[in-house]
Simulated assay, not measured.
Amino acid sequence: MAGPRPVHRVLEVGCGHGVLLSLLAARLTSGTVVGLDRSATMTAAAAARNADAVAAGRVVLRTAPLLTADLDGEAFDLVVAVHVGVFWRPPADELGVVRRVLGPGGRFLLVDQPLRPRQADEAADRVAALAAPHGLVVSAVRTGDTPPRPSIAVELRPRAAPGGTTTPGTTGGPCAG
């Protein structure tokens, strides 16, 4: 479902040790993946794990919470967050930042493992309600049997305005429109 193209610009929110960064960077040729984590310990671990990709310029790491990260002027084709709780519970203001940095045709992939086996529908509905005020809509939901708990992947895209264009980000920005 993530499947970035070789030229895509990707943002991973909450990159942790950099495992997903490695997988994403391996698919890129001229694109880049930015790994963002609020923990300097995690971005250092991600830098060590991805040292060759960092040296080649395919991986860039930043230490900051998403709400205060300096992402102005950047546009991403894909934003990914795995097990990042702020997107699943109110107020989820980070969704506004995601909307602002999504480029034309961009998408946001949100992945988690619900605590109960049948919690996926509830989780997708909750994300849809949190995302709507930020101009994002659920475009796909996939679940998987991933022990020890089932997993869910929710894909969000900018809401289409009448006439087929996407709505601007709720707080403006370079990627609006």
Rank of each mutant, 00 (worst) to 15 (best):
C15V: 11
V60Y: 02
T170A: 13
L71E: 08
R100F: 04
G35T: 12
S151M: 12
T146E: 10
T43F: 00
G135K: 00
L28I: 06
C175M: 00
H83Y: 14
S39Y: 05
V34L: 14
A140G: 12
D70H: 13
R100K: 14
G14R: 04
A161M: 09
P133Y: 03
L136W: 05
G144W: 12
A161T: 11
C175D: 13
L110F: 09
V84N: 06
R27H: 03
T146C: 04
A124S: 14
G177Y: 07
E94C: 11
P104R: 13
T43D: 04
R142F: 13
L115C: 08
G103S: 05
L130V: 02
G18K: 05
G169V: 00
P168Q: 04
R126G: 11
C15M: 05
A53S: 09
P104Q: 15
T41P: 08
C15H: 09
R100A: 15
L20R: 03
R62A: 14
L136M: 10
L20Q: 10
V82S: 15
V101G: 06
A40C: 02
L61W: 00
A160I: 01
R126I: 00
V97H: 06
V80G: 02
I152G: 00
G18N: 03
P162N: 03
L24N: 01
R157T: 15
V137F: 02
G14S: 08
V80S: 08
P117Y: 01
A48W: 04
G177W: 05
G105V: 07
V141G: 12
A2W: 09
V127F: 01
A47G: 15
T170H: 06
A160S: 07
A92Q: 07
L110V: 10
A129Y: 04
G164A: 10
P117R: 12
V19Y: 15
V79S: 13
A128M: 02
P65M: 00
V80I: 13
P168A: 15
A140P: 02
V97Y: 04
M1H: 07
V7F: 07
R38T: 14
E122H: 15
R116L: 15
V54Q: 07
P147F: 00
P4V: 05
P158L: 00
R58I: 02
W88N: 11
A132C: 05
V138M: 11
G163N: 12
A47N: 01
P91A: 07
A81F: 04
R99T: 09
V59K: 01
R126T: 11
P65L: 04
V19E: 11
V34D: 12
L67M: 12
G105C: 13
A131I: 08
G3R: 04
R5T: 05
L20F: 15
V79P: 14
T167Q: 13
P150E: 01
A51C: 09
T143Q: 06
A131C: 03
T43M: 03
A55K: 08
V84G: 10
A46Y: 00
A140Q: 11
G106K: 08
R5K: 14
L71T: 09
V86P: 13
P158H: 06
G57P: 00
A129G: 13
P117G: 01
A124W: 06
Q119N: 12
L136K: 03
